[in-house]
Design a binder for these strands. Structure first.
Lengths: 178, 178
DNA sequence: TTTACTGCAAATTATTTGCACGGTT
DNA sequence: AACCGTGCAAATAATTTGCAGTAAA
C-alpha cells in the first residue's frame, strides 16, 4: 500500500483539535490528512466498523455490506477486495487493530487511541476466546493495563501497542462438557 | 483430527510420574497415552520443536526437516502435510502453542506446563514483534503473569492459557527510521 | 494382521493483484 | 483533467484432504 502522491488539502500543520471525536470522525480526518479520497466502499466500511464493538472477519464485513446493498441501503455493491484494501489501509494508519484468536482467520476492530480520551468511542479491551465453540468475548482489566505499561518501560523496544488473549472454555461449554 | 480407536497401552490410571521430564519426553508420553503411534515424521517434528526456543512457521519446520533429509540425517523426506498434521495433533494435546503475530502466518512453539515445574524445558514467555522488520523476540515478566493469574479468577470463564503480544519497533528499526 | 502414519498431489480457502471504468478533488 | 478508488475476475499462497503404500503394535 503506497500513499497517494500528495495530500491536496494537507492540514497536518493546522492547530490540533482537542474536542473529543467519534472513531469515525477521527478515521475520516486521518485518511484525509494522509491524502486519501473518500470512496464509497471505504466510507461504508468506516461506518460499519464504527457500529461494531468487537472484532469482525473480512467475510463478515463483506456480508454485511452486501446485505446493505441488497436491502437498498447502499447505492452499489462492495467487492470483497475493497474490504481487504480498506482494512489494510486502516490498519496501516493504526485506525483498526487486527485480532488473531488462533483459528487462522483475521479479525479487525476499531483501535482506540492509546493514553488518550480524545475518542468518544474509546473502549480499549482484550479478548477471551472459547476454544470449543469459538465465542469471542471482550474484557478489560485495569490492573493488567498497569502491568503492561510498567513492562513496556522494561523491555528494550519501542512499544506501540499490545494484545492479550485468554484461551479457555466459556460457561456454556464448561457446563456442556460435564 | 480424531483420536485412534483405542489406546493399546493405556496407562492413564497409572501412578503419575513426578520426576521432571524434558518437553520431548512429555510429548511422547502424552501421545502414547492418547493411543497414538510413533511415526517417523512425528518423531522428527518433536525433536525439531524440542530444539527450538521460540516459535517457527510451518514452512520453516518443513524446510529444516527437508534439509536434514538432504543432509542424510533423516532416512526419508517429510511432507509438509505431515508437518501440518503433526502440529495439529500436538496443538490439540496442548503440547504446542500457536502464536499469531499479525502477519497471517501461523507459528508454533512448545508449550510449557502451566503452574508446574515438572518440565525441565519449561520456559513460559510472551512475544514482542517488530512491525517493521518482523523480528520476533520472546520475553517474560513476573508481574505480568501475576496480573493475569489474578484476572483469570475475575472473568466468568475457565481459562486454560493466555498470550500477550507487544507490537512496536525493535531497536534497529527505531534507529533506522531517524 | 489391523489400523495408524506418511508422502504426494489435488482441492480448498483466505488473501492479493491486474485491469478498465467511474468518482473525487 | 488528473489520478484515486472500486468491482470483478484471475492469480497467489496457506492449509486441508484423498489416496495408496509403509510401518507400528
Amino acid at each position: 500500500m503506497t500513499a497517494p502522491q500528495a495530500a491536496p488539502g494537507d492540514n497536518a500543520h493546522a492547530a490540533p483539535t482537542t474536542a473529543p471525536q467519534t472513531w469515525a470522525e477521527r478515521a475520516r480526518a486521518e485518511l484525509q490528512r494522509a491524502g486519501y479520497r473518500r470512496g464509497g466502499a471505504r466510507e461504508q466500511l468506516i461506518d460499519l466498523l464504527a457500529r461494531e464493538r468487537c472484532a469482525l472477519t473480512i467475510q463478515e464485513m463483506a456480508a454485511r455490506l452486501q446485505d446493505a446493498y441488497r436491502r437498498g441501503a447502499n447505492p452499489r455493491p462492495v467487492g470483497i477486495a475493497s474490504v481487504y484494501r480498506g482494512i489494510e489501509l486502516l490498519a496501516e494508519l493504526a485506525l483498526v487493530a487486527r485480532v488473531d484468536v488462533g483459528d487462522g482467520i483475521a479479525r479487525y476492530e476499531r483501535a482506540s487511541v492509546e493514553n488518550s480520551d480524545q475518542d468518544r468511542d474509546h473502549h480499549h479491551h482484550h479478548h477471551f476466546i472459547c476454544d470449543r465453540c469459538g465465542l469471542l468475548m471482550p474484557f478489560d482489566d485495569q490492573a493488567l493495563e498497569q502491568a503492561i505499561v510498567a513492562l513496556e518501560d522494561r523491555v528494550g523496544f519501542s512499544v506501540s501497542g499490545h494484545e492479550v488473549l485468554l484461551h479457555g472454555a466459556c460457561s456454556d461449554c464448561r457446563d456442556a462438557r460435564r
